[in-house]
């Protein structure tokens, strides 16, 4: 069972034309509906961003690592990785662990966005090296606020 990463060029821009000043986001989530909401929220929040938005999507941890590898080779490592936890084949915690063990991905901003609202999950994710942990909100407006908060925190400084 082999799967190709699904790369969606939101703004119809060629990845190869990517230059500095673009805001690159990798969403790793197996739920296409959640991806739809996050992508939509990112687009709404993009007015705050300094440059155009690049969104890549991977459907599980394994796929996320492959995608990161590919983006690294293209010299286009994401500014932020939005990482779901509960996924088939490789979950978010495992992928996080792999990233923090890899010198190329150690410094990436990886934000865990999960449906799990318990403290235990947040603590564990933080211990494994998550930059922040957000509970998936139940409305797009809240998701927009989360995305704005992330972009402010990790891009504007």
């Amino acid at each position: 069972m082999s799967e190709s990463p699904i790369v969606i060029d939101v703004d119809d821009q060629d990845l190869s034309a990517a230059t500095s000043g673009r805001f690159r986001v990798l969403i790793v989530d197996d739920d296409p509906d959640d991806v739809y909401v996050m992508r939509s929220a990112l687009r709404l929040a993009s007015s705050q961003l300094p440059g155009p938005l690049d969104v890549s999507v991977a459907v599980n941890g394994q796929d996320g690592l492959h995608t990161l590898e590919k983006l690294k080779n293209q010299g286009a490592l994401p500014d932020v990785v939005l990482l779901d936890l509960n996924m088939p084949l490789m979950d978010g915690m495992t992928m996080l662990t792999h990233c923090r063990a890899d010198s190329h991905f150690r410094h990436l901003t990886i934000v865990v966005v999960t449906t799990a609202s318990d403290t235990h999950t947040a603590v564990k994710a933080s211990a494994l090296g998550a930059s922040a942990t957000y509970v998936k909100p139940s409305s797009r407006g809240e998701m927009v606020a989360v995305m704005e908060s992330i972009s402010e925190k990790y891009l504007l400084d």
Binding site: D33, V37, K136, S138, S139, R140
Partner: peptide, 10 residues
């Protein structure tokens, strides 16, 4: 349930 809530808003 969460999705129903989210997409109802949307």
């Amino acid at each position: 349930l969460r999705k129903i809530l989210t997409f109802s808003n949307m």
